[in-house]
């Protein structure tokens, strides 16, 4: 629960209210990434809590522990995916997709009575993988600093008289306030003795 709900913080009565919303700083890939992060949480919790049901549905009996481990992996991926470090989260999701596909491919064997379910799940994971790849590429591109394109600001000293002439200029008429000043050190307080 956000702290704002827990503490019942409310905006003060006279403060300006939103009349019409403008375009958001969130991009389409940000929103897609966020949706994928929440999907990870949903799937992760399901895998953690109902591995037996998933194993039976897909014909993967005996792999309940593996499914539970995949649930933990999904939750771990969700954390960076929902954070500002989206590329890290999406990369971990893509790696997870590969593991999911490898596991599901074992359920596509001819003798599996739930082979149709496994095929549907396989197709769904391929779709989600494509979304992960699209989101990853977009997010990486939008957060990337173009290499070698930085500007040179070496003409911006901000000191109109030049750095050398400005050094110590303020000491002529500025006294450091007592609360920001060390009133001498221990060495100053102890009289020096001749060797």
């Amino acid at each position: 629960m956000p702290i704002t709900n827990a503490t019942q913080i409310a905006r003060s009565k006279g403060d300006p209210r939103v009349v019409r919303k403008g375009p958001s700083s969130l991009t389409g890939s940000d929103r897609l990434t966020r949706a994928l992060g929440w999907f990870s949480i949903g799937l992760g919790l399901t895998e953690l809590m109902a591995p037996g049901f998933i194993a039976r549905t897909l014909g993967l009996e005996g792999k309940e522990a593996l499914i539970r481990a995949y649930g933990a992996r999904e939750l771990a991926s969700a954390v960076p995916t929902l954070s500002v470090d989206k590329p890290v989260g999406l990369a971990s999701r893509i790696a997870g997709d590969v593991l999911d596909l490898a596991t599901l491919s074992s359920a596509l064997r001819p003798g599996n009575a739930k082979r149709d379910n496994a095929a549907i799940a396989f197709a769904l994971v391929i779709g989600v993988t494509l979304l992960d790849l699209v989101a990853f590429a977009d997010v990486k591109a939008s957060h990337r600093r173009e290499r070698g394109t930085h500007r040179d600001y070496s003409d911006r000293s901000g000191l109109p008289r030049g750095p050398q002439a400005s050094r110590g200029l303020a000491r002529r008429d500025f006294d450091t306030p007592p609360d920001d000043r060390a009133e001498g050190s221990v060495a100053d307080a102890v009289p020096a003795t001749a060797p």
Binding site: P16, V18, V19, R20, P23, S25
Partner: peptide, 15 residues
């Protein structure tokens, strides 16, 4: 409006 979500909105004038 939330994490990474800033908008240029129309709002009521302050008094």
């Amino acid at each position: 409006h939330g994490k990474e979500d800033i908008r240029c909105d129309t709002v009521s004038d302050p008094q």
